[in-house]
């Protein structure tokens, strides 16, 4: 199909954006990487009056370490996440997630802000943001507010974003030496949306005891799912086979997955457990893994 006729405005500053929003109101649709939006236009699933291209707004770009936090600009492309040295050092989970996202052409254009704002429940980055307990900087003409990723996702493709509001940046605490993170997923083909996935973050002290476990699952609900019961099952325990089994057992109550084209809910629940075991097994000391 062909796009409907649409207007286009290139915003070079935040003021340009607010101006475009004032002028066009609800007809203005923000365009960043465009990797979801452009497909919906081609299907004529959405017919915005005007696209406001925000990719030239400097305030939304760049990765920096400031005030003890890592700030990832909303326009950071997936490919940049994969190769940025600050991300690799302070938020390696994001860097590890990038290769799972679609294909190189999409990673070269898609942005972290776009992925979080679209809130696809099977996408990697929302789950990573939840696992890392990220703070999102939301910006509008009315000013800035900060919300935790965990509460940001409110349902299928829906978030706390209000009309006229955009994600400006994602902020996470730099990884401590004790932090362990992993992202695993099961997808039919490389690059496909996951049938089930896990983004896991926790800390292990010198004795192998788990602190601050945050296991977040994707592709198994209407939003990224923080596995609270599994996290409780792990917290404070020495990470070993029994702890992993306990977390896997507890996970059953955390998830209420929907059926999809790939299979029934019980398949997703099963896959989530498999992924939980595989992710946590990676964190075991070498001798435990050998055993």
């Amino acid at each position: 199909m062909k796009w409907p006729a649409i207007g286009y405005i290139r915003a070079r500053s935040l003021d340009d954006l607010w101006e475009a929003q004032r002028t066009h109101g609800a007809a203005a649709q923000v365009l960043a990487g465009g990797q979801t939006l452009l497909a919906t236009l081609a299907f004529r699933l959405s017919e915005p009056g005007v696209l406001v291209d925000i990719t030239r707004i400097p305030e939304l770009r760049g990765v920096s370490l400031a005030g003890g936090a890592l700030r990832i600009g909303a326009l950071t492309r997936h490919a940049e996440l994969a190769r940025d040295p600050l991300v690799a050092r302070h938020a390696p989970l994001f860097a590890a997630a990038a290769p799972h996202i679609a294909h190189p052409a999409i990673r070269n254009r898609g942005t972290i802000g776009g992925s979080l704002a679209y809130a696809d429940p099977a996408a990697e980055l929302p789950a990573c943001a939840v696992a890392l307990d990220a703070t999102l900087h939301l910006l509008s003409a009315r000013g800035e507010r900060r919300v935790k990723a965990e509460g940001f996702f409110t349902g299928l493709l829906s978030t706390l974003l209000e009309p006229g509001e955009i994600i400006a940046a994602v902020e996470v605490a730099p990884a401590s030496p004790a932090q362990r993170t992993a992202i695993l997923e099961v997808a039919r083909r490389s690059g496909d949306y996951a049938m089930a996935g896990i983004a896991a973050a926790l800390e292990l002290d010198a004795t192998g005891r788990v602190a601050a476990p945050r296991l977040a699952f994707f592709g198994v609900g209407d939003r990224p799912v923080l596995a609270n019961r599994a996290n409780v099952a792990l917290a404070g325990r020495v990470l070993d086979a029994q702890a992993i089994a306990a977390a896997a057992e507890a996970l059953g109550d955390d998830l209420d997955p929907p059926a999809d084209l790939h299979g029934p809910p019980e398949m997703k629940r099963h896959l989530a457990r498999v992924l939980l075991r595989r992710a946590l097994t990676q964190f075991l000391p070498a001798k435990e893994m050998a055993a």
Partner: peptide, 8 residues
């Protein structure tokens, strides 16, 4: 097709 669901 031999999908994960069918094999599981």
């Amino acid at each position: 097709p031999f999908t994960p669901a069918r094999i599981l």
